[in-house]
Nucleic acid binder design. Sequence first.
DNA 1: CGTCATAGTTCAATGACCGAACCGACGCTA
DNA 2: TAGCGTCGGTTCGGTCATTGAACTATGACG
Lengths: 170, 170
Amino acid sequence: MLGKTYERQDCSIAGALEAVGERWTLLIVRDAFYGVRRFNDFQAHLDIPKAVLSDRLNGLVEDGILARVPDPAHAGRHLYELTDSGRELWPVIHSLLVWGGKHRRANSRVLRHAQCGTRLSESGRCEVCGVAPGPEDLISERRRGYQPKRDDPVSQVLRAPHRMLEPIET
Amino acid sequence: MLGKTYERQDCSIAGALEAVGERWTLLIVRDAFYGVRRFNDFQAHLDIPKAVLSDRLNGLVEDGILARVPDPAHAGRHLYELTDSGRELWPVIHSLLVWGGKHRRANSRVLRHAQCGTRLSESGRCEVCGVAPGPEDLISERRRGYQPKRDDPVSQVLRAPHRMLEPIET
DNA sequence: CGTCATAGTTCAATGACCGAACCGACGCTA
DNA sequence: TAGCGTCGGTTCGGTCATTGAACTATGACG
């Protein structure tokens, strides 16, 4: 996206879009909510040129949305994890998920409240418990009968129900 | 944005971003919620190249987010209005507004529930009435003490409190 | 020590974005 | 009705972002 900024826009939406409005950025954040943490896993799941992925990850780290932490299992490598500020992007991700599922293409996954198993309403609330669970209290699972189109290692792991934010192992 | 699409992504978020993920698009939708309806008003308020604005408006009309309707006051001209599907983007706009206001730059405006005057919570609910008002039930007003940076006709009109979705006259 | 996987960087080609200039339709004024 | 201004665009050359492929550096494995 040419000109990443909206300098002449005096508005917090423009401010948010400067951080997450570039191509691919919100899909990277989505994957981070799914538990993706390694460069190669993002790359395999997103089919994104490595140069762009590298640029976006650096930008997200600079903006405090992801943190680059040393990988305890592999010296010299990093993991990318959502910061608190990044986790607060959940309502953005969820509202796009709901709108896209309704108006563009059906969701491949459904979200349930981990404590009671209820499917989330469109507004992101669990109507049984009367709360709006954070992503850490949600289980994402494949919609029944859904035929997955992708076959990379991350997609394979995500075929099983999975608690959001829990790191995935490929 | 090169390759506007995310064909290889099997996900409703990617679907949503194909419609509203390009540069400027969500700011155009934001202005539509503020009641902007004319080409020149979008252009003046956004400082966007006309060619890009034209392209984005066509895309939004094609995707059923805006409707191009004849302007009753001026033969041969059009107005761009949010469709029902476009209005359902409100949670996306609101969540970006909240996140950006908290993490990037303070909001220039505040939102109040028209029926009772209460400021909206971060989750978009009116805690007094216990409902999540749609944009048509919201009043947007300038934050007290806020120094506006822009001086185009649309910004001038929006200095007064304004009900969302109500057409503005410049 | 050689091979592999990971995590990048570099590069040329292509496509998107930008600002300025241009253009046709309509409205207003004299 | 001739002339001018506004609105809503389109066209254009230059600049910047994205792409896919090739290359590199580091550590793990055997």
